[in-house]
Design a protein around this nucleic acid. Structure first.
Lengths: 251, 251
DNA sequence: GCTGGGAGAGGCTTA
DNA sequence: TAAGCCTTTCCCAGC
C-alpha cells in the first residue's frame, strides 16, 4: 500500500479515535522502562481509541511491544512510514518503522467500556458472607468494613468461642504471597482488637512452601471448592477442612 | 460480509496458522477459570497461528476476553457465524457469535518467535556482578550458582569482614514481596552456611510499609539508580546507600 | 509436567 | 495522586 495513503488513513483514524489495524513489515524500537529492538519482520500493529498501541506477532496473547495512553504521531520517512508514540509518566518512547504495509483497517468502534457480566470473586465473596458456617460452625461475620477489605475476601468474623477470625479467600492455588498477606491482616486485627486472632486461608489449594509458612505463622488452611454457573453466578462450597497443629519450622 | 465466505476464509486461515483479524458485531461467552458474557457489540477478534484467541474493545492494551493454545472451530449458525475455542487444561470454553462481519483479514506471518534484543535485568545483573564494590567496598561475589538464583539478581557475596551477604535486586520500587523474598533467601543461606547472614535489597525505591518490614527483619536497603542505553545495554550505578539501625516494630 | 517468580506486568479501587 | 492488590494474570526457565 502507498505510504501517503496509509498516512492519511492512519491520521484520520487517530483523529476519530478509531480502531486501527496495520499489518506489514516493520522495525520496532522501544525505550523507557526497558529498551528493546525488533528487527525487520511482519507484524500486526493495533492502535486503539484511547491511544494504546500494541505490536503483535503471530503467537501468544500478549503483544511483543505495547504502550498505553500515548501521544501518537504518524510521519512519512524515506521509503517508510513512521509511527511514533510517546508517554510522559513513565517516560517512554515507541517507534514503529513500516517498510511495507500489507493491510490497513480503520474502524469506528465505541470507546465505552465493554460491559462484562462475570461470575467472579465478588459473587464468591457474597456467597461466603451469606453463610460462614460452611467454613466452620458458629462462625459469624462481625466486620466487612472497607477498612478490612484488602483482599478478594477479607472477612473478620468471630468463632463460637468468641475469638476473632480473619479469613482470606483466594480463587487460585495459594502461594507465599497469600500467606504473608493473611498474616499481615491477622497482625492488624491483633493490634486493633488487642487479642489473639485466628487466621484462615481459604483456597482451592496451597503450595507446599506456602503451607509451611502458614503453619509457622500459626495460621489455618481450609480447602475451598467452588463451582461456577454459566449464568454468571457462583456457588461456594467447602469440600474439606485441614486444620493442623502449628509446626515450628526453621523459617 | 457473507458468512459462508467468512467461514471459508477463517477455516483456511486456521489451517494455515495464519494471523486472522475479524471485526464485527458479536456476543461473547466465556466459561472456565471464571465466567463472562459480553453483550452484542462491535469488537476485534484476533486469532493467531498458535491457536490463541483474543477479543479486543477499542481501549486498553489487554483483551477483554482471550484464550491460549486452543482448539478452534468455526461454524455457520442461523444468521450468524460461530467461533468456538476450547482448552483442556484448564478446561475452558470461549464462544464468539458474530451477527455481522465488517472486516476480515487473513495474513500469513511466521510463527517463529520475535527476536527481541533488550536491555533487561540480565545486563543489570551482569553489570553488578562485575563490580559489587559499587554497593559496598570489599564486597566479593562468592556464589552465583543456579541454586541461589531465585530472583532477578540473587547474589551471595562476602563482605570485607567475611560475613555472607545476600543481595536482591529489583528494577522497580520494592514492595512487601521483595522484602519477604530477600528474607527468605537470607534464611536459606543462614541455614546452609550456619552463620548469620546479611541481606541487602537493591532497588530504585521502596514502599514505606515494605521498608518497615525490612527493618523488622534486620535487612538493609540500598537505593539503586540505573541508566538504560538505547543500544540495549545497561549501566548500573549506585546513587546512594541507606543503612539504618534495625528497628523493632510491632509488625 | 509442576513450580517459582519476573513483567516495560496491566488495570482497578480506595485512601 | 499513590498504594495496595487482583488477574481467566501471561510467560518463561528450572527441575
Amino acid at each position: 500500500m502507498d505510504f501517503q495513503k496509509a498516512k492519511d488513513e492512519i491520521s484520520r483514524g487517530l483523529l476519530g479515535k478509531e480502531l486501527l489495524v496495520i499489518i506489514g513489515s516493520c522495525e520496532v524500537d522501544y525505550f523507557g522502562r526497558a529498551t528493546s529492538k525488533l528487527k525487520l519482520g511482519k507484524r500486526l500493529v493495533l492502535i486503539k481509541g484511547d491511544g494504546s498501541v500494541s505490536i503483535h506477532q503471530n503467537r501468544l496473547v500478549r503483544p511483543t511491544n505495547y504502550m498505553l495512553s500515548t501521544k501518537i504521531g504518524c510521519d512519512l520517512g524515506e521509503s517508510c512510514l513512521l509511527i511514533k508514540a510517546q508517554r510522559q509518566k513513565p517516560l517512554e518512547f515507541l517507534r514503529i518503522n513500516f517498510f511495507s504495509i500489507d493491510e490497513l483497517v480503520r474502524h469506528s468502534i465505541e470507546l465505552s467500556d465493554d460491559l462484562r457480566l462475570s461470575g467472579s470473586e465478588r459473587d464468591l465473596n457474597e456467597a461466603l458472607m451469606q453463610d460462614l458456617s460452611i467454613i466452620e460452625d458458629g462462625l459469624k461475620p462481625i466486620n466487612q468494613q472497607q477498612h478490612f477489605r484488602k483482599g478478594i475476601c477479607d472477612i473478620v468474623a468471630q468463632d463460637s468461642k468468641g475469638s476473632f477470625v480473619v479469613i482470606e479467600l483466594k480463587r487460585r492455588t495459594a502461594d507465599f504471597d497469600a500467606v504473608t498477606q493473611l498474616h499481615r491482616y491477622v497482625q492488624e486485627v491483633n493490634k486493633i482488637k488487642g487479642v489473639k486472632t485466628r487466621g484462615i486461608l481459604l483456597a482451592p489449594d496451597i503450595r507446599k512452601r506456602a503451607l509451611e509458612l502458614l503453619y509457622h505463622f500459626g495460621l489455618e488452611f481450609a480447602k475451598l471448592d467452588f463451582e461456577l454457573t454459566s449464568e454468571g453466578k457462583e456457588k461456594a462450597k467447602i469440600k474439606g477442612l485441614q486444620k493442623k497443629q502449628r509446626k515450628i519450622t526453621s523459617f
